[in-house]
Design a binder for these strands. Structure first.
Lengths: 253, 253
DNA sequence: CGAGGAAAGTTTACACCGTTTACCGTTAAT
DNA sequence: ATTAACGGTAAACGGTGTAAACTTTCCTCG
């Protein structure tokens, strides 16, 4: 029994704390506009750079670590904000979460770039696996499933899908909490991919600044993109209410 | 008269050639998977690094120069491919150009990242201006206008638009060949922004690899996104033909 | 308790990077 | 022919990631 318990020796607690400090310091550097460097992180922690190699194998792993934690942190924020609507109101929660995601991306573009605009080479299976456990991805798939569970919007059956897509729906390599989705309902994953692609698109465009700043400021492009999904997600009857929530959340700034 | 002619002295020709070589060498480095560094470019040109400062003020300018030229080069490729359809068939040309853009982004992700995934800070007016003259942006706006000129799909009137968006349509800060669009038709720019956002979204998602590799390989996500725009662009009557062109172009690999 | 060993640091070193400064031929213009 | 601009060099500075060798600290086990 004893060895089954996670052994929290003094050393391990210290090590855990060091990891936390790494992430905190990195986030601070990022917010200050400095760029994330191994040496800078080490220096600010009162260590020499090579010491950090006791914690990460190389620079890329440092970045991945920070990205993963920032993703978790951000997702927790959106989730908390979404909880101002009841559990049985997933549509409202989804709207809030999307807006908060967007506000986060626009107000903290460097964090966003680290987490979401970080190129992943096809061959890099390690980093790809890391992507699979992305917290935000799981959160959004889960939310989408709940919306479906409540509103039962249509989605393609597995045999309507392109064989490759079918496989990708059944055994997703992307961040997704698919276990919860019944095998025969896995066509839902296609809706997830499509809607995520749309959301990712506007948000990346806005966050990276490849867009008229006035348009970003107004939020209209994002708003229109979200509204496009009201119909496909079976929320037509709720359009007015959800639009209200959307606008309110956007105005919150 | 004489001083109106662009003076092509020997020196200026040489200088021009050097600029071309910088871009060529940088592109080669990029394609080899090395990262773009001022020193590496200089070394491969047989120069020392400081010599490059006679041509660009700093590293960022080197990147911008290369990005701009690669954008031009790529746009020329898509445009040439699109010309296999007649000038009076802008819809087919648009489909071809979009697919070629996507194939370029997926097969040369590093070039894509340089040109389109390069963050631009809000304050950086210089780089923002550079963005405004982006060749690809002009090409796509132009093509969209031609589609509208032929099919007359509906678009919001200026007074239907949010005031901020209206202003952005009238005096665009984004790459766009807007002069050609009559003042009262500037609502078209809204359609441009929205469709560009959608296109940019999938393509970035696929190019950066934040997506199941099998889905990228199949091209289905991109295909579906493009097909969504057949209706809004007034091309419903052409759906079958355009879908054929789309699939053919995607299969071309 | 004390010996042994792993863990966590440091120092030193190397090869890169962007950038500045001072200097020097070559080339073009007056 | 003189002068000035141009296009290059060498040296140097401070920054980066990373490797190897060495030291100190702490935990564990006989």
């Amino acid at each position: 029994m004893a060895q089954l318990r996670v052994p929290v020796t003094r050393r391990e607690r210290q090590r855990e704390a060091t990891y936390d400090e790494i992430v905190a310091v990195a986030a601070a550097l990022l917010d200050e506009g400095a760029d994330l460097s191994l040496r800078a992180v080490a220096a600010r922690m009162g260590m020499t750079a090579p010491a950090l190699y006791r914690y990460v194998a190389n620079y890329q792993q440092l970045v991945d670590l920070v990205a993963f934690e920032l993703d978790r942190e951000a997702t927790a924020e959106w989730a908390e904000a979404a909880e101002r609507f009841a559990e049985d109101d997933p549509a409202a929660r989804l709207v809030v979460a999307c807006v908060r995601f967007r506000q986060w991306a626009v107000s903290k573009p460097r964090r966003f770039a680290l987490v979401f605009a970080n190129p992943i080479a096809e061959e890099d299976t390690e980093r790809r696996e890391l992507l699979t456990v992305s917290t935000s991805g799981h959160y959004f798939t889960d939310l989408l499933w709940e919306v479906w569970d409540r509103y039962r919007f249509p989605f393609p059956t597995l045999d309507e899908l392109d064989p490759v897509i079918r496989e990708a729906c059944l055994d997703p390599l992307i961040p997704a909490k698919a276990e919860r989705i019944a095998h025969e309902d896995r066509g839902l994953m296609w809706i997830y991919m499509r809607s995520w692609s749309a959301l990712y698109g506007v948000v990346t465009l806005e966050s990276t600044g490849h867009c008229d700043p006035r348009v970003i400021e107004s939020g209209q492009l994002f708003r229109a993109t979200l509204l496009d999904w009201i119909g496909p997600l079976g929320l037509e009857a709720e359009r007015q209410r959800l639009t209200g929530i959307l606008d309110e959340e956007l105005a919150r700034r």
